[in-house]
Every structure is written in structure tokens, then in C-alpha cells.
Design a protein around this nucleic acid. Structure first.
Length: 293
DNA sequence: CGCCAGGTTAGAG
DNA sequence: CTCTAACATGGC
């Protein structure tokens, strides 16, 4: 095995991020045991089976199936840094949120909680589409079936590691494959459309990373099935824009309704008005509002 | 049984 | 540009 560590910012709580990783028992792309996370990470010609722990303010990484001469550890370091959003400086966000009625208590209570994301763009978009307009529990059921059916599986050291299906694999699918998993026709079509966009090289993480925020959003929304909510979800979870904002998100609406003790959910216009205060930090405001639910 | 869920699209006004 | 119906199925 091969071990290395990653230092973390002061404003980082490993425990809060683990809480998020534990939010569904049906999660299949990682497992948590004894405070450690187990996840398969795809490199160019190697599936790294990693164990992630935390001590002395450092993320401790063990690549279970690599030798001491392992050369690609920096790729895994980059992946994990993106996964836990270690590059974002949260000081300005906390300074703003401390004085905000809706957020002050939340940022105090969940200090150091970061947007645990998806460094893989296809996974991010496909997962967002899977979660469109259905409850989270059912969304995890669909994801579990999808990954078990079309993803990569490897068992090692008593644990099962899965990789999300690749665009190449998903581009070959259609209704006949996905309807039995209880995807709707619409969801099935969208997921395959997205996969094809990757295979056609119409979109890729690298090419979209070069664009501006607005251009990236438009590019993502040009894919059928990717609307404003999904595009912003990916901009937040994959590209790490702190100003990405899924305006239509039902969770955000419910959080505002609860915190402001409203009788009904706010209109999109009211949500926009609330978020005016969070300009530049919409993604993190969203995260902490979600956490309030 | 009814309402809602981490929405999107196409079409009408 | 904004509003609406249709999509579609489980969770509670």
C-alpha cells in the first residue's frame, strides 16, 4: 500500500463531511467504517482503492492496492482535494453569514462543513438528472440499481468498491435497459443523451473548465435534460463555483419556508430576493440551508 | 389516498 | 420573457 497526507484549512470539519457521506444507507460509490471512507478512484489505467481518514488536521490517504513506488498519488490528492472542496477559502463566507439572520446559527452549528462534491462531471450530471423531481430516497435507489447494473465492481479487503458507469457504457443504453430499473422514459432519455454528449466530445470537464461561469452554464444547458437547476448543481459540485445557485431547488425552498416560518413555500422571486444577500456565495448558502432540513 | 419530491421541456400567451 | 401542462413513480 501507499500512504500520504493532505493538510486541510482551519475552516474544515472532517466529521461534518463524513456526516454528509453517511446520509443514505443506499450510497454505493463509497462506504464509511470506523471514521474512514473507502472509495474507488479511476486513474488512467488503474482503479485506486483508497481509504481516507483524518488525524492531526490532515487527511490521511491510503491507496490499498498500490506499492510504495506508486507514482500517481498526486492525481488522487487532487481528486480528494476537489472532492472535499479544500481549495475554497471560507473566511469571507463566514464573515458574511455571521451577520445573516437565516445563516448565522447554521454556520455556527455546522462550522467547517464543506460542499462534498463530485470531481467527475459525468457522474455529477447523471446523478443530478437521476435526482430530478423525485425524493432523495428513491433517487438513491435508482442510483444503486444504475451503478450495480452498469458500473465497475471490485471486492477487496472485505469491502465492495464501485465506479460510476462511464459515458461510453451509458451511451450504448436505451429505454429497454433503464425502464426495468424504474427510470422514467424521460430520465432514461436524458441520462443517455448526456452520455452521448461526452462520447461525441461535445462536452468534457476539461473543455468546460476553460469557459467563464456563464458560458459554462449555457454549454451545460445546451444538453437536453440539463436545465438551470442541474447546470448549477454541476457548477457547484464539480467546478466549485461558490456562486453557483440551483434556484429551483425544492430543498432550498423548504429551508427558507421553515426558517422564516412561512405558511407556504416562497416563490422563485422571493427566493431570489433572499439570496441577493449571499451574492458570490450562493453555493455555500445553499449548502447550509440544505443542512437545516 | 393525496401531496410532494434536490426539475425539464415544449408550447402558448 | 413568463406561465402551464405533461412527464412518472416512490415515499410518507
Amino acid at each position: 500500500m501507499y500512504q500520504f497526507s493532505i493538510p486541510v484549512p482551519v475552516e474544515f470539519s472532517y466529521d461534518r463531511c463524513i456526516e454528509f457521506l453517511l446520509r443514505s444507507p443506499k450510497e454505493i460509490l463509497h462506504s464509511v467504517a470506523d471514521g474512514k471512507v473507502y472509495k474507488a478512484i479511476l486513474l488512467k489505467d488503474f482503479v485506486a482503492l483508497t481509504e481516507v481518514g483524518f488525524s492531526n488536521r490532515q487527511i490521511m490517504v491510503t491507496v490499498l492496492n498500490a506499492g510504495p513506488d506508486f507514482k500517481d498519488h498526486f492525481i488522487i490528492e487532487e481528486y480528494i482535494s476537489q472532492w472535499f472542496d479544500l481549495y475554497t477559502d471560507l473566511k469571507p463566507f463566514y464573515a458574511m453569514a455571521q451577520n445573516d439572520k437565516l445563516l448565522s446559527q447554521l454556520v455556527d452549528q455546522f462550522y467547517g462543513y464543506r460542499i462534498v462534491g463530485q470531481p467527475d462531471l459525468f457522474e455529477s450530471l447523471a446523478w443530478a438528472v437521476i435526482g430530478q423531481q423525485i425524493n432523495l430516497s428513491f433517487a438513491y435507489t435508482l442510483k444503486q440499481r444504475f451503478v450495480e447494473s452498469f458500473g465497475y465492481k471490485q471486492v477487496a479487503q472485505d469491502k465492495t468498491f464501485y465506479l460510476f458507469p462511464t459515458p461510453e457504457e451509458v451511451a450504448r443504453l436505451n429505454d429497454v435497459d433503464l425502464l426495468p430499473l424504474q427510470f422514467s422514459k424521460q430520465k432514461s432519455k436524458y441520462v443517455v443523451e448526456i452520455a452521448k454528449a461526452f462520447v461525441n466530445q461535445e462536452v468534457s470537464k476539461e473543455s468546460i473548465a476553460k469557459l467563464s461561469f456563464e458560458e459554462a452554464k449555457q454549454k451545460l444547458m445546451s444538453i437536453k435534460g440539463v436545465g438551470n437547476w442541474t447546470a448549477n448543481y454541476a457548477l457547484m459540485k464539480t467546478f466549485r463555483y461558490p456562486n453557483a445557485f440551483p434556484l429551483e431547488d425544492a430543498g432550498v425552498h423548504n429551508a427558507i419556508k421553515n426558517l422564516k416560518r412561512m405558511k407556504t413555500k416562497p416563490t422563485l422571486d422571493q427566493v431570489s430576493r433572499v439570496f441577493k444577500k449571499y451574492k458570490g456565495w450562493e453555493a455555500y448558502a445553499t449548502l447550509y440551508l440544505w443542512k437545516s432540513l
